[in-house]
Design a protein around this nucleic acid. Structure first.
Lengths: 345, 345
DNA sequence: ATGAAAGCGCTAACAA
DNA sequence: TTGTTAGCGCTTTCAT
């Protein structure tokens, strides 16, 4: 058999200390029911022998492995990786390890991954982004496994989530554009039938227009799923094609920064000056957005905070602590930089 | 006890099929020693009952959990996340799940994470980047656990690695700069005492100068660890300070694109034109490098390929397949874009 | 307070 | 080929 190494087990400790294995277990798990003298003996044995509890064996018994599964769409997306970073730091501090899987926007893949993780006795799930597909989330929820949904809006208040108000945030972006006097405001997004986050941003765009008494003009709304996976490059191509058609607003709101980067490049390629001829506002505040030219005005999402908040919420539930509020909306901030200005005369 | 749910077990299948549990196990694990009729019965039972093997129980027995641990410095770094993507796709296809931990350049954290993963019976390790600190890698290696080191150069050919030739790649960058006639070539890096990858790039820079008969000028070599964690922003600050001192080369080579972004911004902030006054060459080919202004000339690392190659190599070892070559160097390509030009007259 | 023993679900050695 | 059983390392019940 493949017994690669022989770690000391609780048995070895028991023998060394001259006590029962259950006593050792009780010391390790701080049950507080072990006599002072006995505890001392165990502690000494623990000191002497390099012992580390076998998480797998423990997991088989307790059905818990101090492991959290996180399911994301695409780890390469900077928004995603920043949220993960926030989660990772909290998980580590609290003694949990992270299992990560990417679905690349494939719902079947998402289902498969969940099954795999279920097999592993993960203690909790984070769903980061992705399609509405509440069924798949529900399936986990109904098994009684703690879960938090991040950046995926769920109708059901039973299901804990950490979000921003995407609708209000995008409306804020449109309001900002309007405050400069823009009347022709385009929008760049991928499709959103199955994705509430992008849908709500779109709704925010519409609401922004409406409140500012601007008619919705489908000519300047670019909706294309080609921009989804290879965001920046894809947007560059899609927008380049769009520009050939001639319809040009004086400003664009963008579903996210990574798409805005491609939009900006396409605009520049046509010799269009930003913001003198066309203004652009992004969404997310990816770090690169401050290093492009011009620095991108954008809606900042509190990415790391979202991750940290979600993980703390999840671990509180895992550890059965009292959770005050499991439906959390975090605030966004509009970052004024240089890609928005008044429309040309 | 916290028995959250009662998955059907191999026992239930055995009862349903009217065979012994070991027979079921043999069917599931395709041992090929089960009679056709019996197998059919088991398959039918498997069909009827929603059965999924309990990985934890299996792991306790076999000391293997189809899990790979990957240890990175910082998941937010685009180079890192692209390599992970390459690894993730392969791992998933081959039926493994990924445990990910970040150390944020902290050696103690790295040690701690390794211990945690060791407790979990991971089947293999990937070390992505990080300090030389061969000891920590060795400790895993000596336990006989398969491991691959990526982007962390290891002297010991026993230890499998996937790398690029950092020295040659950076030398190639310097050669390229020289081919435009540059004689004053600066370099931007963080410290590299404990990090062979950055050290070898530095050595490549030095060798490039030497072969082109240019004296090394410490005045225009910027070495600062402040650029390590918050790369782009940090580099912007460091370089901005540097520019106040007045020494200015006609070209900069950069340890990585994310640092180049900060460098470029600092240069522009001083009104310096790229490439008319100063040329800049990066390293990595992060996707944004093509979307900044001017598009960044850079050395392309095959990031996803590195990840995929490393994971395939690792899993081959885990599965005890014959491995032809466990020391792999992948090629780099110099991408000519617009940030390099001839020096000013 | 301490110890003995059952058993989590599975694999593998051994017996039949 | 098939079935029985031990045991992976741990937690937890139940005696003592």
């Amino acid at each position: 058999m493949n017994k690669r190494f022989n770690n000391p087990s609780i048995k070895d400790i028991a023998r060394e200390a001259g006590v029962a294995i259950s006593t050792v277990s009780n010391v390790i798990n701080k049950k507080g029911i072990v006599g002072t003298e006995t505890e001392k003996k165990v502690l000494k044995a623990l000191e002497k022998i390099q012992y580390r509890p076998n998480i797998i064996a423990r997991g088989l018994r307790t059905r818990s492995t101090s492991t959290i599964a996180i399911i994301v769409q695409d780890i390469v997306n900077p928004y995603t990786s920043h949220v993960i970073k926030g989660m990772e730091e909290v998980a580590r501090k609290r003694g949990y390890t992270l299992l990560i899987a990417c679905t690349y926007y494939d719902i079947r893949e998402e289902k498969k991954q969940i099954d795999v993780f279920l097999d592993q006795f993960v203690d909790g799930f984070v769903f980061l982004g992705g399609y509405d597909n509440q069924g798949v989330v529900r399936r986990v929820y109904d098994r009684g496994i703690p879960l938090v949904s991040v950046d995926r809006e769920i109708d059901d208040p039973d299901i804990p989530y950490v979000l921003i108000d995407n609708l209000e945030a995008m409306k804020k972006a449109v309001d900002y554009l309007c405050s400069f006097g823009h009347k022709k405001i385009g929008y760049v997004t991928f499709r959103f039938e199955y994705q509430s986050t992008s849908r709500n941003r779109y709704l925010g765009y519409c609401k922004g227009l409406e409140e500012n008494h601007i008619d919705y003009d489908p000519e300047i709304v670019i909706i294309d799923d080609y921009m989804k996976l290879n965001e920046t490059e894809g947007t560059f191509e899609v927008v380049s094609k769009f520009l050939k058609k001639g319809a040009l607003p004086t400003a664009f709101a963008c579903i996210s920064d990574v798409n805005a980067f491609g939009l900006v490049k396409a605009l520049k390629a046509e010799g269009i000056k930003i913001p003198q001829e066309v203004s652009v506002i992004g969404f997310d505040n990816i770090s690169f957005s401050n290093f492009m030219e011009p620095p991108l005005t954008t809606i900042k999402q509190p990415k790391k905070l979202m991750g940290a908040t979600a993980m703390n919420l999840l671990l509180d539930m895992v550890e059965k602590k009292k959770v005050e509020n499991k439906n959390i909306k975090l605030p966004t901030v509009l970052l004024e930089r240089d890609s928005v200005g008044p429309p040309p005369k």
